[in-house]
Design a protein around this nucleic acid. Structure first.
Lengths: 169, 169
DNA sequence: TATATTAGAGATAGATGTTATCTATAATTT
DNA sequence: AAATTATAGATAACATCTATCTCTAATATA
């Protein structure tokens, strides 16, 4: 059980979108090349971010991506949800409803039937996930930028910026 | 991204181990039959619980499983870790190290290289998971038993107990 | 001691999800 | 009109999950 790498790529790319001192949109080409990933793969991830409303796409020449909201209003959780989907980590299969006790009682064969809402085990796991969710909601792109501005070696920050600025012309 | 159903089966079965008023070990046969799962599949899950030290197995006739520790000392997190393994939900692939800035600097090609420990994004995701973990550590089998004793319909509790007691002779 | 019962290990297989690439299409600046 | 860039679709390798079947090892009981 683990999050897909998409989350990681997305977070690193969003950091660049928020921290590069440029007004123009930034293209997949630059981001993919910087991180050593294929453009086709990274664009899939960016499509999800667009659909979730975190970034905007500008098509055509000189196109690319830019944030759709202010960096204080984009959280780590938004990114996780955009890439992984809204389904909870723990999905109750309703084993209670399948047990012999309830056998034949209900016709509902879906995995998210009524009794899942009343299953204490399910409730507990959802509450646990909620803890993680709340923590990640507090961590915004603005926070990430401020934190990394401080803790990233100035030399690295300089290198990164000049690499991108050169590419973006 | 989601936890495997194994976690759910395990939690439901452990609840029976802790709440049934019997001294004898309980067999896979009964548990699988009660939940409507195959014995072979459920025994895979139970093997993991044994290896994690949560339950003990008694082989042979009249054998089965029983708790290896007191129910106050078995938490939901123990179960998740036993089934899902100890790897964190968010596994840093070290995209920083792969970026052009660091290209060629290190020979370490593993996914868990040094710089992962210094990657703020990785640290943040691990902290988020820690929130979930702490919550689940507080929820023990003893707590589950006490909670369900109260909130489960007495009729269901009765049915369940008599179903098992009949099978166990 | 022989037999029945039960856990455990191994092989396997279908379904699903992840990671990744390639191609073709639509939009837009120059 | 041409070049550039995002978007959608098809596809494929690979891993993991879910699940079952078979065979082996251990043990209580007749």
């Amino acid at each position: 059980m683990h999050y897909s790498v998409g989350v990681e790529y997305a977070l690193h790319c969003l950091f660049h979108l928020v921290s590069l001192p440029v007004k123009k949109p930034i293209g997949i080409k630059e981001l993919a090349s910087f991180q050593g990933v294929s453009e086709s793969y990274l664009s899939k991830i960016f499509t999800k971010l667009v659909k979730a409303g975190l970034i905007q796409s500008i098509p055509g020449v000189k196109g690319g991506y830019e944030l759709a909201r202010r960096p204080e209003q984009i959280s780590f959780w938004d990114v996780v949800e955009a890439i992984e989907g809204k389904q909870p980590v723990f999905q109750c299969r309703n084993v209670i409803a399948k047990s012999v006790i309830h056998a034949g009682e209900m016709e509902d064969t879906s995995d998210h039937g009524e009794s899942a809402a009343h299953c204490r085990i399910n409730i507990t796991m959802l509450q646990a996930e909620e803890q993680m969710k709340q923590f990640l909601k507090e961590k915004t792109l603005q926070w990430l930028k401020e934190t990394l501005d401080q803790e990233l070696a100035p030399e690295i920050q300089e290198k990164t910026k000049s690499w991108f600025l050169q590419r973006l012309g």
